[in-house]
Amino acid sequence: MDGLEQYDDQVVNPDDAAALAEAVKMAAAGDRRAFEGLIARFQGDIFRMVYYRTSSRMDAEDITQEIFMNAYRGVKGLKDPGMFRSWLYRIALNAVRDFYRKKRLRSIFTFFSPQHDEEHASRDDSSLDHLEKKQFWDRLGAFLSRLSDAEKEVFRLRFLDGLGIKEVSVVLGKNESTVKTHLYRAVDKFRKEQELCGFPLEESL
């Protein structure tokens, strides 16, 4: 199977895209229930997207709420319903950036920056699950730390969030060839350094 097609399958398929566009149109016309349907569909994805970037469940919950509030207020102005997903991820990315800006500002006024909000492994997990999760997030963190900011973001959007290249370019406001260049560098680093960072993972899913 072709790998690119495999990834593109994760992008909304045409049938869903048509239904999605219809729901977005209704939401844009002021249909609250239609927007609640969009929330039901995207809340998990957006929450995870934020969680991948904040490593904090509580922050991810707060930011996800803020993202959907902003989307609800702005959906009337969305000209192309087919762009809803990219538009939503763009709002999400801006919300995450805003979160880090505020956090940096707060850290100026505090003597120490709390590191204990890295809570990838929940306390409820059994020790084995806890260890597996911790190992995974440590490996991913170690790999991502070797990428530039642009490579990191493109890699996350493409392989963690499952967006297509066109969608990534819309979310980041960059042209597709720039996105491909950053993505190629990130993938090539992954190929070279995956073992160094503890990958390949064992497939137990």
Binding site: Y7, F136, F190, F199, E203
Partner: peptide
């Protein structure tokens, strides 16, 4: 491998 990273996350 890339797919597995996404699924694991």
């Amino acid at each position: 491998q890339l797919d597995l990273v996404g699924k694991s996350a």
